[in-house]
Design a binder for these strands. Sequence first.
DNA 1: GTTAGGG
DNA 2: CCCTAAC
Length: 606
Amino acid sequence: MEKVVEAEGSDEGKFEETGLETSNFVLSSPKNVTDPVVYKLVRVDGNGRLVPATDDELMEVEGLLENEKRETHIVADTGQALGCISNEVSPSGMPQLESSEGLSQSENTEADTEKLSAYLEETVPSGAKNSSDDHVTQSGRVGECLKPLDGPLEGGSSTSTGCISSKPDFSKLKGEICLDNLSIKELHEVFKATFGRDTTVKDKLWLKRRIAMGLTNSCDVSATTFVIKDNKLVKKDNEDGFNNVNLGAGKEHLAVAVEYNEDLLNNLSSQIDEHQTTSEVRLGNNVVENNFASEDLAADQRAAKRVRKPTKRYIEELSEAESKEYSGRSIASTKSIGFRPLSSKAHARPARNVSLEGRTVITRLDSLGGFGIQVPCVYRIRRSRPRKNVTALLKFHPSGMGMTATFIKKGFDVHGSQMDNGSMNKVLEAKSTPEQAPEQFVAESKKETTPTDMGQNMGLKYVDPSGDTSDDNVVTVPTAKGGIRRKHHRAWTLSEVMKLVDGVSKYGAGRWSEIKRLAFASYSYRTSVDLKDKWRNLLKASFAQTPTDKGANSRKHPSMPIPASILLRVRELAEMQAQASLPNLSTGKLSACGGGSVNETRPGYL
DNA sequence: GTTAGGG
DNA sequence: CCCTAAC
C-alpha cells in the first residue's frame, strides 16, 4: 500500500525536519524543490500516494502514525496545488494542507503560502476530511496544459506561481503535458529538456512523438492529441474518466524521467549504448519514422529506452513481498557500470533511524533473453532478517544473475553503505554454487569481522545501536552440505542487555514477544527469539562465573564485557522466575545453582 | 505467531 | 544466530 519516496541527497534531512516525528504529514517532502535531485527516486502507489517510509520504518513510529498510516496520503500532486487544490486531507485536517503547500510552493515566499493555505482551507470543506482514499478534485484540472512544476530540473528556479508560464519551460511541467498547443520552438525546448540536447527536426508531429515517447517510454504514441500523466500516455478524451488515479505521482515521475535522460546523454558508456540500441531494434520498439534525423533518432531511442519498464520477473525478484506496494514503474538509472555516484547519493545517510532510504534504483546490463537490456535494480533497506527461499527466484538465468550479483556487490562494497540484506543475501545465494562459495565467503567475512569486533570492543562504552539499525552485518557460513548459510551477527551492546534484563524483570522471562514489543521497540533487528537466546546466554554466564570469580571484566575474551552487576541481576531475576514457576521444588536446577549465592539474593527484588 | 531447546 | 518442534 505504501510507497516510498526517496528524496535524495541534500533533502534527505528535510523529511524529518518537516515533521515525520512530530506530526503526521509524513510525506511533506522537501521544500527545497530547486534541488535537481530531490525527486529523482520515487515510489508511488496505485493511488498516487507517496509514503516516505517502508513498513518497517513506519512501525517504528507506530504510535504516531497509527491512525494516519492508512488515511494519510501525502499530497504528491502538490504541483497542481497552484491552481488545483488537492483536497486530500488527513484525518486530523490541517497538517496535510501545510505539507502540500510546502511542496508546491517551494519557491514562493511565505506570503504566497499563506494565501494558498487560506485557499485550501476554504476549498476543502472539513466534511471531506475523512474521505480516505479519493482524489476527488483532481479531475477538474486534468485537461489543462502546462501545469507549472516546481522545477526539479535544470530550470529549477521557476518563479511562476500560476499556470501562466509563458514559456514552455519543460522543467516546470507537471504530471500533465499537453504538447498540442506548443509551437515548434516550444517543442524544441521541451525536447531539449526531455533529452538534454537540441534537435534539428522541424516536424511538429515528430517532435511531439519523440517527447511523448521520451516521457512515457511508450512506443505507441499517437501523434495527435494526448496528455502525459504520470509517465503514462493518456488520451485527452479519457481524462475525465478514472485515470486520475496516478495523477499524484506525476511530478516525480516526470522529474525522474527527464533527469534520467539527461544523465543518459552525459554518461553513456559505449558498451551500453550498443546493447541498448541493438536490443531496441530487435525489440521493434522503434516504430518511429526513420526518415528524420537519424542521429536524433538513435539517441532518442536510447533515451526512451532508458526508462523502460522492468520486466515483471525482475520486479518480482527484487520486491518480493513489496509487490503490492510497488507499481513497478521504477525509473532506471543511466549508469549501469558506473552507478556509483547515484548510488552514493541515494544512500546518503539518513539523519536518524527513521530513515527514508526506501530504495535505490540502479541498473545493470543484463542479458535476459539474449538482449542487452538495462534493468533497474531496486533496493530497499531491510533491517530484519533476510527472507528465506529467495533462491528459487534466481535460478532462471544463472549467468545473468551472477553478473548482477557482482555488480551489486561491487557497488556496495565500494561505498560501504548499508545495504539491503535481503538483496544481498539473494545475491549471495545466487552465486553460491559450491565452487564459487569459497571466494564469496572470504570476501564477506572480511567485511563482517571488522564491524563485529568493533561492536564488541565498544562493549562497555555503550553505543546505542538504535541509530544505525540498517547496517546489519552479513556473513556466510559454510555448511557441511556444501552450501553456505547466511548469518548475520550483531553484537549485543550493554544497553541492549540492560534493556533485556529490565524487560525480564518487568514482564518475566518467557514473555519475549512482550519484551520485544515494549522494551525493544526501537531495536527492530532483535527478534523475540534473539531475546530469548540472549537471556539464555546471560543465565549461563551469570551462573557460570560469578560464584567464585566475580571479575566479569577480567575475562579472557574481550568479547564478553558484560559487567558483573548485570550478571548479578540476571541471576537474581533467574532465581525469582524459578521460584515463581517452581515454588515447591527444592531440587530444581536453578534453585540448586542459586543456593551457592544465597548471600546475593535479595528477596522481593523487582 | 510464540516459545523452548538443540545445534 | 539458525532451525525446528511444539504449543
